[in-house]
């Protein structure tokens, strides 16, 4: 028996909006730790890993580990039927072939339930080692989204370069080129407005901009985004969900040959 009651139901809605265009079908895994997902896009260039810890739920019952295959676009459609302040409860029976979503309005005057059929999905689970990254940049998520959107009007790739001077985002295309530099800035009124750069070594990596732009759909989940970069590794773009969990995107870089 699975029963998960999420008072801040809009979190689940925002998570689905953030991943539904990147991944078509995926398995949601439920265990004592929490509600999680790891899935790659069809070309194996990008991966999303998300976790809502069991503590994020007002009620969390998961009698045994369960993996539920769902079409994410359909799941997003179901979640769009919930109100912005609704409490969302997920329910599934052991050995069942469906997942029920229950939406309760905050004053309990409307209760809706939607049942979705589960799918069998063969998915490759990647082992992602814990790594010390050469550079970690924390910055306002809205600023990062703005930069990616602006650069995508100029080119198809984004070079992210971290030096002592700051973090530089660059692109070039048929009409020309663009460079945007953000310097460390901790003298802000609100901590979420800070830009913090921790650098062990300078690093430059180049990525396909359309993937990074897709990751920024997670912006409503967090005021800050963290970029973790090392020369020979995929970048990690992480949005922390308060004390409740995270959504991380991994993106393979362009490789010089």
């Amino acid at each position: 028996m699975l029963e998960l009651r999420l008072v801040q139901g809009s979190l689940l809605k925002k998570l689905l909006e953030a991943i539904k265009d990147l991944v078509t079908d995926a398995n949601f895994d439920c265990s004592a730790t929490g509600f999680s997902l790891q899935a790659m896009d069809s070309s194996h260039v990008a991966l999303v890993s998300l976790l809502l810890r069991s503590e994020a739920f007002e009620h969390y019952r998961c009698d045994r580990n369960i993996s539920m295959g769902l079409n994410l676009s359909n799941m997003a459609k179901v979640l769009r039927c919930s109100g912005p302040d609704d409490i969302i409860t997920l329910k599934a029976d052991d050995g069942g072939d469906s997942l029920t979503f229950m939406f309760e309005s905050p004053n309990q005057d409307k209760i809706a339930d939607f049942e979705m059929k589960l799918m069998d999905i063969d998915s490759e689970h990647l082992g992602i080692p814990d790594t010390e990254y050469q550079a970690i940049v924390r910055m306002p998520s809205a600023e990062f989204a703005r930069i990616c959107k602006d650069l995508s009007g100029i080119g198809d790739t984004i070079a992210i370069s971290v030096t002592k001077e700051g973090v530089k985002f660059s692109t070039r295309g048929d009409i020309g080129s663009a460079n945007i530099v953000c310097r460390q800035n901790t003298s802000v009124d609100k901590p979420e407005d800070a830009t913090i750069i921790e650098m062990e070594e300078p690093v430059t990596l180049t990525f396909a901009l359309r993937y990074i732009n897709s990751f920024t759909k997670a912006t409503p989940l967090s005021n800050q985004v963290t970029l973790s970069l090392s020369s020979d590794l995929p970048v990690v773009v992480e949005y922390k969900i308060a004390e409740m969990g995270y959504i991380r995107f991994y993106l393979a870089p362009k490789i010089d040959e």
Binding site: S43, H44, E124, L126, L233, A252, I255
Partner: peptide
Amino acid sequence: DPRQGTLLDFFGVS
């Protein structure tokens, strides 16, 4: 031009 890497170039399937 550099080629687009895949995650399988970096991470193993567990």
